Each structure stands twice: as C-alpha cells, then as structure tokens.
Simulated scan of single mutants.
Amino acid sequence: MKLTILGCSGSIPGPDAPASGYLVESGGTRILLDLGNGTLGTLQRFVDPFTPDALLLSHLHPDHCADFGALTVLRRYHPAPPYDPAERKLPVHAPAEAPERLAALYAPNAAERAGADLSDVFEFAPVPESPLRLGPFEITAFPVHHVCPSWGFRIAAEGRVLAYTADTGPCEELTELARDADVLLAEASWPDSPERPDGLHLSGKQAAELANRASARRLLLTHLQPWCDDAEILAEAREHTTVPTELVTTAARYAV
C-alpha cells in the first residue's frame, strides 16, 4: 500500500502546501481521501486525475473538499477524457448532505444553485456504517469529534493498515481507529497550550499520546496550520512518544 500526500496544510492552504488530501494505492486500485484547496493540482503530478476509483470525504469543511468543484469541471468538460464519465461515474462516499452542499459549491451562478445536480458524473453514497470493500481495500469509518459530522478512516490492504484521523479533537473512537496501525496519519493542528480551543483538533502531544495508546508503528503528522510552528509541534510529539514520528510534506510518498 502506498500513500501520497496531495496536501497537508490545516484550515487554509499554506504558501507551499495545498490543504488536506491524500492518494492511497494498492494493487492497481486508487482511492482519494479528502480533496482540499489545491490538491487536484498535486494529484496530476502522479496520476491521471480520471484514474482514482473512489473519493472518500471525511467532512465538508472547505480545506477537505474545496477542489471537488474543480474535479466536477474536469469530469464534465475535459475534451478528451480516457472514458465517458457519465458511463463510469466516480463513487463518492461522504456525509449525507454532500450532494446538495457540493452542488452549491460547484454552481456557476446563483440562479443555478437551487436544484443543482452532480449525479451525471458522480455516484454519491453516505459514509459507510459497515466496512466497505474497494478492490483490495477494506475501509472502516469511525465517527470522530469535530464541529461538524466528521469521520476518520481505517484502511487495510496487503496485510497493512493506514489509519487517518481526519479532523478531530480527542475522543474514544480514535484508539480503535488507530489500533496496531502500521501508519497513523494524524492531524496535529497546533501545539499543546492553554490558548488553543479545546476539543476541536489534536495537538502534537495528543497525536503522540494516541499513537502510544493504539500501539501504532509509525506516526505521520498532518493538517498543520500555516500560522503554527511546525518544528515546535514535531518536537512536542517526539517528546511524548518513542514511535517514529515525522511531519508530512506535499508530494511526499510513503510505503505503508
């Protein structure tokens, strides 16, 4: 299983990093986890953007789904696509309100917003309540604690496990999500300090403590906000765990 970082900036894009988005590949099957601002551009460095087999959206904040509008333009108007997008619709597993919310995001003008429909090139389904099979992948969604409905994803293939927290504050579900994961891709949006909002995101310390509780084998920190000190967050995480820990960067690739 291979993980490619399409973007890793939290809340907004950074000067050198799109927002959150990830490509996961195994055995010829490709899935996208989130598609925040700028991630469709990074995707094109590595694969034809028509080739992913599914898109999973953890939640509907712009830094995790804003490039869905650009993906809609691509699938509707590319002059020479490799297949007919209307015949081979992209499966999108997302929060229940995604069809309406994403149609409004894409709508080219206010008059077309009401009743807009993207089902010509996408096939929407709610975030699955039971494990989902996609090619060699088994994907289990865990509801996590955020200011809107949000899910983390546990992705198993080839005898390996990638756990992705998405956006979350501390919650009990995270431990099972990350249990014995080969790679824990955890948000660490800010340093652990009294000034940070409580329960909205993880700090570097909290991501490290999660890796410890879950016995994860490797910790990758993502969703670092441009106004925070990345080095401080990394040092904080390493202080609280012996699990190998590093910051991800845009376009980095990892074997899970």
Rank of each mutant, 00 (worst) to 15 (best):
F68V: 08
L56V: 12
E138S: 15
L23M: 15
H59G: 12
F46Y: 14
D63V: 03
L177H: 05
S11A: 12
L185I: 03
P136M: 07
D167R: 12
T42N: 04
P191M: 11
A156E: 13
L184T: 07
I233T: 06
S26G: 05
L74R: 13
L90T: 03
L35T: 10
L219E: 04
P143N: 13
A252W: 00
D182V: 06
P128H: 07
L221T: 12
V92L: 06
F122A: 02
G199P: 06
R160C: 00
L132M: 04
F46H: 15
A157N: 02
A94L: 06
T245Q: 11
C148D: 10
L43K: 13
T245R: 10
A216K: 02
Q206D: 06
R160T: 05
N109S: 11
V47Y: 12
S215Q: 09
A166N: 09
A216M: 06
Y83M: 01
G69T: 14
A96D: 14
L247S: 08
L118M: 14
I31T: 07
E172Y: 01
A252H: 06
A107V: 00
G10A: 01
A141S: 15
L224K: 07
H223N: 14
F122N: 05
S203D: 13
I155S: 08
C8V: 11
S119N: 14
P85M: 09
H223V: 04
T245L: 07
L174P: 00
G41H: 09
P49Q: 14
I233N: 05
H223T: 06
K2F: 04
L74Q: 12
D167K: 10
A214L: 08
A181C: 05
A116E: 05
A237D: 13
E87W: 00
G159W: 13
A211P: 04
A110Q: 00
H223M: 09
F124I: 07
E87K: 14
E236K: 07
L71P: 06
K205L: 14
C65L: 01
Y22W: 12
L71Y: 14
P128Q: 10
I31D: 06
A186S: 15
V248K: 05
K205P: 07
V243R: 03
D167S: 14
G199Y: 10
A103F: 03
A211Y: 06
N212D: 14
T175F: 08
L32I: 14
C148T: 15
F68M: 15
L32R: 07
P194M: 11
H59M: 09
L224V: 15
R76N: 02
G204T: 04
P226A: 11
C148S: 14
S193G: 02
E129Y: 00
G10M: 02
W151V: 03
R179I: 02
R154F: 04
E123Y: 01
R133I: 04
G14V: 05
A188E: 01
F124W: 12
